[in-house]
């Protein structure tokens, strides 16, 4: 029966000791431990979240990179294409210009030649006229005594002259 009857002294001391333990542990043990654990859990959570975010950012970044690269590649091909076009154009222009110049040169030369030819023909005409005149006058001095005969003969001679042949 002794075993089943709580004694006053024991209850008294247990109450005091337990209250003391409860108070001291709550203040000096449970509070710091629980706070520290919570803080650590928060920081781990934070770290995990940050890692996730960084991962996402990395993914975005690599996607960006890819895009950038693609763009650069496009740009390059565009630039290359433009350059090629430009070069082609320059070459074509150059050819055009050269052929123009050549053509012009040729035309000028021809003109020159024509001019020279005309000049030469005119000179020749004059020279041959003079020569013919000389010859004629000399001939006529001998054969034609009259002025009128001389002149008609001259005209006939000149009309017969056709330099544009040949």
């Amino acid at each position: 029966m002794d075993l089943l009857l709580p004694q006053f002294g024991l209850i008294f001391w247990t109450t005091i000791v337990f209250l003391l333990v409860l108070f001291l542990l709550s203040k000096y043990a449970w509070k710091p431990i629980i706070n520290a654990v919570r803080e650590r859990e928060n920081s781990i959570d934070e770290a995990l979240r940050t890692a996730e975010k960084v991962k996402e950012e990395m993914a975005a970044l690599s996607a960006d990179n890819e895009k950038l690269l693609q763009k650069a590649r496009e740009e390059r091909s565009k630039i290359l294409k433009a350059a090629k076009e430009n070069a082609d154009k320059i070459v074509a222009d150059a050819i055009e210009k050269a052929s123009d110049a050549a053509r012009k040169l040729a035309a000028d030369a021809k003109q020159d030649i024509d001019n020279q030819k005309q000049a030469a023909i005119a000179e020749l005409k004059i020279q041959s006229g003079k020569l013919a005149l000389n010859i004629a006058s000399k001939l006529l001095q001998k054969e034609l005594a009259g002025q009128a005969e001389q002149e008609s003969y001259m005209k006939k001679l000149i009309e017969d002259l056709d330099f544009n042949q040949n």
């Binding site: 333990v21 001291l24 542990l25 000096y28 043990a29 449970w30 710091p32 431990i33 520290a36 654990v37």
Partner: peptide, 12 residues
């Protein structure tokens, strides 16, 4: 109990 847990709490 106090020794153990106050010691543990210090470590935090």
């Amino acid at each position: 109990l106090l020794l153990i847990f106050i010691r543990v709490a210090r470590k935090y």
